[in-house]
């Protein structure tokens, strides 16, 4: 059988909020090492890679590897039924046709079970090569969300230009143009407020706002976001999920026609 328990169901709620605008369904690969999801959005422009390690769960048991196709919208609806302080347990039998979500209140006076039918999905897995990136930026996730939101008003895409002076985000369109520059700031009072720029080579890449604004939905999972970029390869936008894992979004850059 498969059983995974998280004392803080809020983490799983936030994970669902971070993927539900990009994915309608996804295969959850469960093994001894944890839960992995790799899925592209319907337009095949971005890829979501989610990893939740088994040792990050409060209880984890997976007797045999399982691939469970799940409706993200249905899972999201079920997780909305969990109380903020509830514990969540995911449970499935071997060769499952459904998965059960069990929510337990902190004082154990309420137990709710939601059973969700699994869906058959074509297995499709992409090999992501190890890449050494020209620029790796760490910055507050709230700041990144704000920049994407603000610049989206000016155009459909945002250009990221990284130089030794810092990183400049810019957008332009029919109404005008805007740019926001950030310089390295490792003296911030709090670690989560730091901006760290590790640049090997300057670069300039353009990405679609529509997808960036989906990625920033992972902001509540982590105070910091890491952006890894090189010429002609996808941007990696990574949020750590506490001590349990991470969510990485890959986005192909836009190219000049």
């Amino acid at each position: 059988m498969f059983e995974a328990r998280l004392v803080q169901s809020a983490i799983l709620k936030k994970v669902l909020d971070a993927v539900k605008d990009l994915l309608t369904e996804a295969t959850f690969e469960c093994s001894d090492s944890g839960i992995q999801v790799q899925a592209m959005d319907s337009a095949h422009v971005s890829l979501v890679s989610l990893n939740l390690r088994s040792d990050g769960f409060d209880k984890y048991r997976c007797d045999r590897n399982l691939s469970m196709g799940m409706s993200i919208s249905c899972m999201s609806k079920i997780l909305r039924c969990a109380g903020a302080e509830d514990t969540v347990t995911l449970r499935a039998w071997d060769n499952p046709e459904s998965i059960t979500f069990i929510f337990e209140s902190p004082n154990k006076d309420k137990l709710a079970e939601y059973e969700m039918k699994l869906i058959n999905m074509d297995q499709e897995h992409l090999g992501i090569p190890e890449t050494s990136y020209s620029c790796v930026i760490k910055m507050p996730s709230g700041e990144f969300s704000r920049i994407c939101r603000d610049l989206s008003q000016f155009g459909e895409s945002i250009t990221f230009a990284c130089s030794k002076e810092g990183i400049k985000f810019s957008a332009s369109g029919d109404y005008g143009s805007a740019n926001i520059k950030l310089v390295q700031n490792t003296d911030a009072d709090k670690e989560e407020e730091a901006v760290v720029i590790d640049m090997q080579e300057p670069l300039k890449l353009t990405f679609a706002c529509r997808y960036l604004n989906c990625f920033v939905k992972a902001g509540p999972l982590c105070n910091q976001v890491q952006l890894s970029m090189s010429d002609d390869v996808p941007l990696v936008c990574e949020y750590k999920i506490g001590d349990i894992g991470h969510i990485k979004y890959y986005l192909a850059p836009k190219i000049d026609d």
Binding site: V45, P253, K254
Partner: peptide
């Protein structure tokens, strides 16, 4: 500008 698809960067396994 045009948008490349993400699967063109990765290999199917």
């Amino acid at each position: 500008m045009s948008q490349r698809s993400i699967d063109s960067f990765f290999t199917r396994i």
